[in-house]
Design a protein around this nucleic acid. Structure first.
Length: 308
DNA sequence: AAAAATACCAACCGCGGGATT
DNA sequence: GAATCCCGCGGTTGGTATTTT
């Protein structure tokens, strides 16, 4: 239990925005002495701040290697992909984006992406994505461009996207719910480490009733009543195959195709490439295999996927 | 030009997990 | 095993900037 005097001390500590002087003091102290105890360091550094505040300031702003400024198109794509896979696991997502903090990503998501999705729930008309050849996110202040691109990731229908079950990967990430030993990270790592994943993910039919997706299964999941014994997982309604028409034409006409297009078979090489070199989610890839040729870029796929 | 509304983001808070005593 | 400490995470708040009316 915290002592009363400690609470009083905390009450007396400065709060709010950090000044340049405070930044300099903290930076200089850590440069000289390193990080040893966040609760004790502020006093030693002459700062009237809580250890928590110092830690946050260091981790989110002062730490070497922190990127300031706008997120690149690739970073946004990564955020979208990983959020679909992992949900609000900001620190895990941030770990895949060097120089970006969980706080920054969380703010970005809440500001640009979540609002877009929420706003679109009330829209009954689904608009076709307006794709631009240039990256909208090179200038994050250009809200119009953001809306046209990221924002055009239109409604998933109702219930809202946030009420939908996780995607297949995310469901698999949730094996922690069924066992005590697996963490999300462990499971994601294991999933991604499959050297020949294409042997494990197989989409035989486009028809939802016929779809047969076999996935590597967690030992925990095998014992769960939630899933069949062969590890077959339910399809995410987000990407319900009902939404795909076999006659779908390419809605993307003028997209700058400068994005890396990893072949569908790149699932085979998970573990060799960085995560963001990989195509979209497994489900997306599976659909992609069936419906479209080689000309689609990742972003085009994301756009179209979310457009449905 | 001024007030109101909205957007953005840095910072705070509470909680939980792991380590230590 | 229980209590405590420390750290990190995710949700939320509040101040500031910008845009709209």
């Amino acid at each position: 239990m915290r002592s009363i005097s400690q609470k009083y001390q905390n009450f007396c500590l400065k709060r709010g925005t950090w000044s340049a002087d405070e930044d300099q003091m903290l930076r200089a102290y850590i440069k000289r002495y390193g990080i040893w105890n966040w609760n004790e360091m502020p006093k030693a550094a002459g700062l009237s701040r809580s250890g928590k505040s110092c830690r946050l300031r260091w981790m989110n702003y002062l730490r070497p290697g922190i990127k300031r400024g706008n997120l690149s198109k690739e970073e946004v794509q990564t955020i979208i992909k990983l959020h679909e896979m992992l949900g609000n696991r900001w620190s895990t997502i941030a770990a895949k984006l060097p120089g970006r903090t969980d706080n920054e990503i969380k703010n970005f998501w809440n500001t640009y992406l979540r609002n877009r999705f929420n706003n679109n729930i009330s829209n009954t008309a689904v608009q076709a994505p307006k794709l631009q050849g240039t990256s909208p996110v090179n200038d994050i202040n250009e809200n119009q461009h953001m809306e046209e691109n990221v924002g055009s990731l239109e409604s998933f229908g109702e219930p809202s996207f946030w009420d939908q079950p996780f995607s297949m990967e995310a469901q698999m990430c949730k094996v922690e719910d069924y066992g005590e030993t697996y963490t999300d990270e462990m499971w994601v790592q294991e999933l991604l480490s499959y050297p020949n994943a294409s042997h494990n993910f197989e989409c035989k039919q486009r028809n939802s009733s016929d779809i047969d997706v076999s996935l590597p299964t967690s030992p925990n999941i095998l014992n769960s009543d939630e899933y069949s014994s062969n590890g077959t997982l339910p399809m995410s309604p987000i990407i319900s195959t009902d939404n795909f028409s076999s006659s779908s034409s390419n809605p993307v006409n003028d997209f700058n195709e400068n994005q890396h297009m990893v072949e569908i078979g790149s699932l085979e090489s998970f573990g060799e490439l960085s995560l963001w070199d990989h195509p979209f989610s497994m489900e997306a890839q599976l659909c992609k295999v069936e419906d479209y040729g080689e000309t689609y870029t990742d972003q085009m796929w994301v756009q179209e996927l979310l457009y449905y």
